[in-house]
Nucleic acid binder design. Structure first.
Length: 118
DNA sequence: CCACTGACGAGTG
DNA sequence: GCACTCGCCAGTG
């Protein structure tokens, strides 16, 4: 398993996140077959950013918040707008209600817990 | 080779 | 819920 393949897996997972839902860094790491490497996911995404067809804005941290970047980028604001445009809402704390909007790959078959309403 | 940094997360008090 | 620590790993100087 090369690092290049790991990055490819990360991108592949992120690309599978449906519009209107979000995934956490740790979640993406697990789905990519590298549990515990959440940090690497963020690192990989910073490299891709809008550099490719990757919906990077659908990845947030475990608290359901947009992780602040370094360098004073306004990307975090762009990310929030993109998500809101897809129907994802934020609460007073600027957090996404994960139980409502977190992507559940396994549920795509059941569709029962896939409720996004409210 | 070592130290530091960075879109994180789980555990502890 | 908040502050702190430790684990993870690639890039950079």
């Amino acid at each position: 398993m090369t690092t290049a393949n790991s990055y490819r897996e990360i991108y592949s997972v992120v690309a599978r996140i449906p519009a209107g839902r979000v995934a956490t860094y740790g979640q993406v790491a697990r789905l990519a077959g590298m549990p515990g490497h959440a940090r690497q996911v963020g690192y990989s995404l910073s490299a891709v950013n809008d550099h490719g067809p990757i919906p990077w804005h659908r990845v947030v941290n475990a608290k359901g918040m947009i992780s602040p970047r370094s360098g004073g980028d306004h990307m975090e604001l762009v990310q929030r707008l993109l998500l809101e445009k897809e129907g994802v809402s934020f609460d007073e704390h600027g957090r996404i209600t994960l139980p409502h909007f977190q992507w559940r790959p396994l549920d795509t078959a059941n569709k029962r817990t896939q409720r996004v309403d409210e």
